[in-house]
Design a protein around this nucleic acid. Structure first.
Lengths: 109, 109
DNA sequence: GTGACTAACATAGATAATCTATGTCACTTA
DNA sequence: TAAGTGACATAGATTATCTATGTTAGTCAC
């Protein structure tokens, strides 16, 4: 199955939503979660993922703690903050409104 | 109700879809059709609309003919070509796959 | 214990597509 | 003849993703 790009404007929401379902994931895990959780349709590139995580660290939507993977690699584990959860809710609401509007236009006459 | 921007990557599809439902619309009419057809959620700015129409003229997805509005203003009336219809179908299929994938991630755990 | 390999993180620059702001043209109407 | 406006047009800013590349540090083989 061909994998797609992440539509612009949705990456932060997808990352936050992934962390909302399971906290304490590091970058690689988040990328895998998104790919698997989307039924192998969406693929996040590292060059998109890490800048997005940095943005959200600065905005206070996530916090990160350095730790160790089971394989003893160093990795930064992220989890949602209260502000991140609020932001996620707003993003999801906005996304659903727009997606619903597009569906109206796409549906058969 | 607050109106939203068009998500990047969807404008061409929305324009083509609007023309598929009713041909021979000019720019202003297309913008109105999208706004009304989306339940007043989506708003296309002229600075996005006209460049998009130019792109699609060049690609042969639409053809345009200068004419007159009922109020006797000059206006360019657009309609889909066969290539435009094909392109629209591909775009809709791709959009639905991605939207479905995002819905998978957004839905409650 | 040195070198190859790789997991995980990181960043610079390219690219794409929308919006903001502005401008033009021409018809109507006072 | 001047103002208002419908319709079209374009330059530049902005935003967010991807591509390509680089860095760090741990493992494993020899």
């Amino acid at each position: 199955m061909s994998r797609d790009e992440i539509p612009p404007g949705t990456l932060d929401m997808l990352i936050l939503r992934t962390l909302a379902k399971r906290a304490e994931q590091h970058g690689f895990e988040i990328a895998e979660s998104i790919q698997q959780g989307s039924g192998d349709v969406l693929q996040v590139e590292e060059g998109s993922l890490y800048p997005a995580l940095q943005r959200m660290l600065l905005k206070g939507f996530v916090v990160g703690e350095w730790g160790r993977t089971p394989e003893n690699r160093r990795a930064r584990y992220y989890k949602l903050t209260a502000a991140g959860r609020k932001h996620l809710e707003r993003e999801m609401e906005s996304y659903r409104r727009v997606a619903g509007a597009i569906a109206l236009i796409l549906r058969p006459a």
